[in-house]
Structures are given as structure tokens and as C-alpha cells.
Design a protein around this nucleic acid. Sequence first.
DNA 1: GGCCAGGACACCA
DNA 2: TGGTGTCATGGC
Length: 217
Amino acid sequence: MLMNIYRCLVAHFGPRNWWPAKSSFEVIVGAILAQAVAWRNVEIAITRLEQEGLLSPRAIRELPLEELADYIRSNRYYRMKAKKLKAFMEFFHERYHDSLAELFAQPVDKLRRELLGVYGLGPETVDSILLYAGDLPVFVVDAYTRRVFHRLGFWGPNVTYTEMQRFFQRHLPLDVPLYNDYHAQIVALGHSYCREKPRCGRCPLDEFCQWEGKEEK
DNA sequence: GGCCAGGACACCA
DNA sequence: TGGTGTCATGGC
């Protein structure tokens, strides 16, 4: 069933080629900036950092908090995001000497627990970093995943992150490119048809949709 | 002018 | 442990 759904999405949207970033480090910065923020605003902030030559662990670490916040002002929550970026950079430097190779050489479970302990990194951000920056087999779920698969009748509106993630990892082959593109497809769907009325007739998953239009979390 | 966007954390009962 | 408030821009 999950593979059938995936095939419908790919047929409709085409391969998504995620994550939209030029480097693994940029993926990490983007994952933090993207928390509850529209992607276009994230792009503005990343472009700004890049133009100023600040897209490196050291530059972000050494930049005063207020200045960093100012550079990423296009993001809402920009002051919180500046704190979170600096918290990650401190951790990355002290623990892994700014080396992505060292970071991603750790066993996945250990690294996941460790990252979850860093201020500002919750499950979705950590899993995005592991999958899209580290090419590690961790399925990323988000608000779109909850909404889309709730409408498809897979679970109630209050399902937890862990429950959703476990479901995908149990029912899909352990395949990094598949995990990568599946999440990207769900986001593409979330950006488009899931704002429509139930069974709008245009959504690629219309035939599976069981949504009655009840309010969701 | 209102609404919402690829979460996480603090605080309270 | 679960519910609720806070964060605070830009595009449509």
C-alpha cells in the first residue's frame, strides 16, 4: 500500500531530487531554519548568509548572536533560530571538530540520541539532518505526513512522531533514496492538494482519500 | 488585512 | 504526561 501511494505521487510530481541545498552543511542550516517556516523565507536567509561568506561552522560560531539574527531576519522566529544555529555549531565544533565525516561516522542510533540532546534540534530536524545530510536510513515525518496519512485513514489526528516513523520504517524497504524521495513527495503533496476540499478530483491520491473534512490537529 | 508556513521549547496542572 | 503559550517574517 505504501509503495502504491508512493508510485502515484512520483507519477504525478516526478522525482523531487531533495534536499534543495548545495552541501551537507547547508542542509543542516536549512533544516534548522525551516522549522515552522515557509521554505521561500529559508532560501532568503541562506542566500544572505552565503553572500556574506557566513555559511560555515566557524563563521556562524564566531558571529555575535545579534548579528547572526539580523542576517536571518527573513525567517520568522529569527532570534530563536540564531540561538539554535549557534547551539549546533558549538556542539559540532566541540564534539566533532567541525567535521561532517566524523559526525556521520557515528552509529545512527547513537548519533540520533546525541543530536536530540542539542538545544533546538527536535525529532524532525534531527532526522532531516541524518537522512538528507548524512545519507543515513532514517525516515523523516512531519506535519504534512500526519495530515496526509490521516486523510488516507492510516491513523488518528493525534498520532505521535515515533508511531508514524516506525510505521514507515516497518513497511518500507530500508532504502535511503526511497526514504529521501518519499518524504519529499509528501511535502510536495502537502504544499498543493492537501489544502483542497476532500476528494477534490485533482489530487493524485484521491482514490485513497477517506477524509470527511473533519478538523485536524 | 488575514491567514498560514517542511517545530521546538518552556511552563503549568 | 499532556495541553497551551511563545517565538514574531513574508508571500499570497
